[in-house]
């Protein structure tokens, strides 16, 4: 009986038909492809995209510079006399080319001035386009209104 059963299984190949049924099942199901440039993905809030820096609130404490494992942030505080009144950095260099998107610079920032944005299209024509200074730093207009709650990592209205 067993032998007959095995023979029947061999000549009727139910397992192959089962596989074909599975592929047919997915033929009719909705597809998962995102047609990317046409349909923009909605990214979650925590997405670690390109680094954005709010120079206005930065206090030149250089915590991010120390935290960065790749050394891609350089902060130059203003001269001492200026620093007393205006703590904004004299120059801020960001080398996005070496950024690991690890988020270690975001953790220690006392003012929440540096944070990842949801911008994920980082392709550029030339390497130099990934080097930013104070003038060219990307700056997130939408997120400017928020402060960063470090523990919860949720935006809080100013």
């Amino acid at each position: 009986m067993n032998a007959i059963g095995r023979f029947l299984q061999m000549v009727t190949f139910p397992e192959l038909l089962k596989g074909m049924a599975i592929t047919t099942k997915y033929l009719a199901k909705p597809k998962v492809t995102e047609s990317y440039p046409d349909a923009r993905p909605v990214l979650p809030y925590r997405t670690k995209g390109r680094l954005h820096v709010e120079i206005e609130t930065c206090i030149s404490c250089r915590m991010c510079e120390k935290a960065c494992p790749e050394g891609c942030i350089r902060v130059y505080p203003p001269p001492k006399e200026v620093f007393k009144t205006d703590k904004r950095p004299a120059e801020f260099y960001l080398n996005q080319e070496h950024c690991l998107h690890c988020g270690l610079c975001v953790d220690p920032c006392p003012t929440g001035s540096i944070h990842h944005s949801q911008e994920f299209e980082l392709a550029v024509v030339h390497y130099d386009d990934l080097l930013f200074d104070k003038e060219t730093l990307p700056y997130d207009l939408d997120q400017k209104r928020f402060r960063w709650n470090l523990l919860e990592n949720v935006p809080v209205k100013k």
Binding site: Y45, K48, H101, G103
Partner: peptide, 27 residues
């Protein structure tokens, strides 16, 4: 990977844990 992105911010190389615990709670 979408779940990772929502939780940790990155899909592939999320730098998931700080020393001593986890960085964020579940969103």
């Amino acid at each position: 990977l979408d779940l990772f992105e929502a939780m940790l911010g990155q899909r592939l190389l999320p730098n998931a844990y700080p020393i001593g615990g986890v960085r964020f709670d579940f969103p």
